[in-house]
Design a protein around this nucleic acid. Structure first.
Length: 652
RNA sequence: GCCGACGUAGCUCAGGGGUAGAGCGCUUCCUUGGUAAGGAAGAGGUCACGGGUUCAAUUCCCGUCGUUGGCUCCA
């Protein structure tokens, strides 16, 4: 007999070689029908694998993350079986479960190509095979036997995998007609897979290296119930509705032009105004936080970027240098603002009493992203960073970090980002040769970030080896309403640039010292930030930021003049909007305004004109939205109140 | 850059070897209407661009440009 410790701490005595599945059956048949795998001593196992010793024991179902990935991994095998049946001679590389489904990389027989129109056929084959309820059978195999098997099958990629595996640890899994090299685990049989959707086909380089052959990658997702698939598809639909490219067009915020060039956004009046408001908001906060605005040009001499090291690292893949005709000098479109700010720092000698110095600039930078990398506003070739560089003493790093964290949280509050995590990126624990700067300084800087984050009560994740070569950093990840994660604000310590630019200050000991530099951008880039913001709020921006706060709706053309007068008054109170003076009924105007998500509708007709008032309706609340009749002044107080509750002044 | 898909009116999209259609939007007219769609008429397209096949191409084929999913997840 052996002892199994269940998650609730109870201990169950069972026969040696019992399987998780039979334990589940002894609890309840219903449970057993839902068991996908089991966690034995913290390792995910097939539910049919005999347990030979005392262990902690947990059954995994669709409700567990590991249960889902087990089913998806098995679905990848099922897809491979279907592919092999439909395309004999196909070869396979790897087919893992991923965050939201699975994929398999494969090499199609010579002359065969796959397109999305082939996917339904593959899905159908998969479901047909699933209904056969074929068991996933695990088999230990010697390395030599495995090599022989795949050599015989002609599966070169699997032989490549086998090379790196140790004899004695190798297992095969088979279901139906398909056998794969696999460490498992898998679900009991294919019948658990009730619904399958293959999502797209993509090229993927063998081992991710563009010098290697490109394989065909098929992405899919699978579920134990058809209803879950339908829900998943609905979620994808919802994501499409929130897509910032779609909403950006609908809301007249930005556009792209083939003539101007790909990846170069054009901001339309409404988008530009929204952007300006964000910039003003940040400028105000930064002034309060002791930043000094600076301005520098969009190009710089090549030598500047040779000095900073950016030329060596990015020069080749960048926009090519601009030559001057007479002097034959070379200039680059700036890919970063920091070198310029270093030169501003260097413009005169600095004393330790001057530090910290905080230079801020909404600096537009240009980077040549590969055409395939471009994506809406999140990946562009010209963008504006809310950049600032802090020059400080080593002993000031922690305090500066805390202040920047405050600033980032100030931004998140104003824009209603409630769910965020902070990632602390530190050096690789083992390999320290790739980092520049002294061990001692790194130690101090890493500790400073950890302390500052803890002090501010941030939910943090520490990632070793994710630091930049020039220093550790703290990145803020924001989740949108659909749970997708985006990296926005960033704070990075830099030991490299002060070195390269030979930045100095005179210490209290009258000797020269090197300052520490901190890069920080709470928005990251305005383009990317606005994109994420659009998706986060589904186009319904906070009141202080939204392009039109009100629509004035006259009930008939007779009241257009009064409506214009109202708008004029509102403008005097810094409230923005427009008059809908179309020749339409008020019901139509309300409907259109509701759909455009404009926060307030101000209806004016005979009554209002006579009494010099407006009838206020709030968007999105239906009948609840009727706030009654108000004077313009009363309404403006209401707006002020609403904005103030969200937008506090940043206090240092 | 590479692999796949897509490109038809301002927007969303249908169509298909015989030179084009819907809804919304826009313009004009009728209506002057009170909290989610009043009615009528009209203007708008070299069907991304270039080449080929054909009596005939927006439709089929090739190329270019652009957009888009992916190219990190290692049995």
């Amino acid at each position: 007999m052996i002892q199994l410790t269940l998650p609730d701490g109870t201990i169950r005595e069972v026969e040696k070689n019992t399987t998780a599945l039979s334990v589940a059956k002894s609890i309840s048949e219903g449970l057993a029908r839902n068991v996908l795998a089991a966690e034995i001593n913290g390792e995910v196992w097939d539910s049919s694998r005999p347990i030979t010793e005392d262990a902690t024991f947990k059954l995994l179902t669709w409700n567990d993350k590991e249960g889902k990935s087990t089913l998806w991994h098995s679905s990848a095998h099922l897809m491979a079986e279907a592919l092999e049946a439909l395309y004999p001679g196909i070869k396979f590389w790897v087919g893992p479960a991923i965050e939201n489904g699975f994929y398999y990389d494969c090499d199609l027989p010579e002359g065969t190509t796959l397109s999305e129109s082939d996917l339904p056929k593959i899905e159908e084959k998969m479901l047909q095979l699933a209904r056969e309820k074929n068991e996933y059978i695990r088999k230990d195999i010697s390395k030599q036997d495995a090599i022989n098997y795949f050599k015989n099958k002609g599966d070169d990629y699997k032989l490549d995998l086998l090379e790196n595996l140790e004899d004695g640890t190798i297992t095969l899994y088979s279901q139906g007609e398909f056998t794969d090299l696999c460490r498992g685990p898998h679900i009991p049989h294919t019948g658990f897979i009730k619904a399958v959707k293959l999502l797209n086909i993509a090229g993927a380089y063998f081992k991710g290296d563009e010098n290697n052959k490109q394989l065909t990658r098929i992405y899919g997702v699978a579920f134990p119930k058809n209803k879950e698939l339908q829900e998943h598809l609905q979620l994808l639909e919802e994501a499409k509705k929130r897509d910032h490219r779609k909403l950006g067009k609908e809301l007249d915020l930005f556009t792209f032009s083939q003539r101007v060039g790909q990846g170069l956004p054009l901001w339309l009046p409404k988008g530009a105004a929204l952007r300006e408001r964000l910039i003003d908001f940040m400028k105000k906060a930064q002034i309060n936080a002791g930043y000094e605005p600076v301005v520098s040009p969009h190009i710089g001499h090549k030598d500047l970027y040779v000095c900073s090291g950016h030329y060596a690292k990015y020069g080749k893949d960048s926009f090519q240098p601009i030559q001057t005709p007479a002097e034959d000098e070379e200039f680059l479109l700036r890919p970063m603002n920091c070198p310029h700010h270093c030169e501003i720092y260097k413009s005169r000698p600095r004393s330790y009493k001057d530090l910290p110095i905080r230079y801020a600039e909404f600096g537009t930078v240009y980077r040549y992203e590969q055409s395939g990398e471009l994506h809406g506003l999140t990946r562009v070739r010209g963008f504006t960073q809310d950049d600032a560089h802090l020059f400080c003493r080593q002993d000031q790093v922690e305090d500066e970090f805390k202040k920047v964290i405050d600033l980032v949280l100030h931004v998140f509050k104003a824009l209603d980002f409630q769910e965020y995590t902070a990632q602390i990126s530190l050096r690789d624990k083992d390999n320290r040769s790739k980092y520049i700067g002294s061990d001692e300084n790194w130690e101090k800087a890493e500790q400073a970030i950890i302390n500052a984050s803890a002090d501010k009560g941030l939910k943090t994740v520490v990632e070793y080896g994710e630091a930049a070569f020039y220093g550790p950093k703290l990145d803020f990840m924001v989740k949108d309403a659909l749970g997708r994660s985006w990296q926005l604000g960033t704070i990075q310590v830099d030991y490299s640039l002060p070195e390269r630019f030979e930045l100095e200050y005179i210490g209290s000991d009258n000797a020269k010292h090197r300052p520490v530099m901190i890069h920080r951008a709470p928005f990251g880039s305005l383009e990317r930030f606005i994109a994420v913001l659009i998706e986060h709020c589904a186009g319904k921006f906070p009141l202080w930021l939204t392009p039109d706060q009100v629509a004035v709706l006259p009930t008939s053309e007779k009241h257009n003049d009064y409506a214009k007068k109202v708008l004029h008054l509102l403008n005097n109170y810094d409230i923005r909007g427009f008059v809908d003076d179309r020749n339409e009924r008020v019901g139509k105007k309300i409907r259109d305004t509701e759909l455009k998500k404009i926060p307030f509708m101000l209806i004016v007709g005979d009554k209002e004109t006579e009494t010099n008032t407006i009838s206020v309706r709030q968007q999105g609340l239906g009948e609840q939205g009727d706030l009654g009749t108000k004077t313009v002044e009363e309404f403006s107080e209401l707006i002020d109140e609403l904005i103030k509750s969200r937008l506090e002044n940043f206090k240092d």
